[in-house]
Amino acid sequence: MIKFLKSSIGSKQVIGLAGLGLAVFVFAHMAGNMLIFVSPEAYNKYGHALTSNPLIYFAEAGLVAIFLGHVILSLWLSWKNWKSRGSQAYTYKKPKKTKASLASRTMWAQGLVILVFIILHLLTFKFANDGYYVEYGGEKMRDLHRLMIEVFQQPLYVVGYTFCLLLLWGHLSHGVSSVFQSLGMTGERSAPAVKTIGWIYALVVCLGFISQPLYVYFFYSA
């Protein structure tokens, strides 16, 4: 197993599989958060149902493990790849567009920005010391809706959030289809279709997320 993990193919496959797990998570996260368009009660109750379920600790531990595996292995592989290129770059800088997409060439950079974003995102929402609570049917729960409305009414946060989500689009658009190539599941005919599906998947996830702060900032009124 260690030999497999250390190999260039094995490590890439594990990174890809972990990334695919995270891609499924962000889709579920986006879909759940769309309750913002339903009502504050639906949104808060959904959050409460998730966090009050004892299984959440196992799910969170699993998610953290997958996330760390993805990040640590990616950093290690990026460092190895950087070493393989050698110390000197080509003198001639190509002005024309290469076949390789910008997203595929800058995965590590997007990943690092997204990592910082996730840490800030968790501090802003999950670990916020806001003291906002609400009661529905006698059950007390966090008023996540109020917190979210406040945060998404700050222009700087909305701009930053949108920028990071656009990076996530790039990251997912390459990552989701790339994992199937790394696992050897694509053929000559299926590869373009898989690429398109990955691109659409990324678009759906990111548009779903971005629609929320934009809705709050431009259209929401209490």
């Binding site: 190999s7 260039s8 890439k12 393989s84 595929s104 790339s178 790394s182």
Partner: peptide
């Protein structure tokens, strides 16, 4: 062949297609 490729110090594929 993959073990030798890694041993020689070539990088991993990131599916850019270049």
């Amino acid at each position: 062949m993959v073990a030798q490729m890694d041993e020689e110090g070539f990088g991993a594929c990131t599916n850019t297609g270049s």
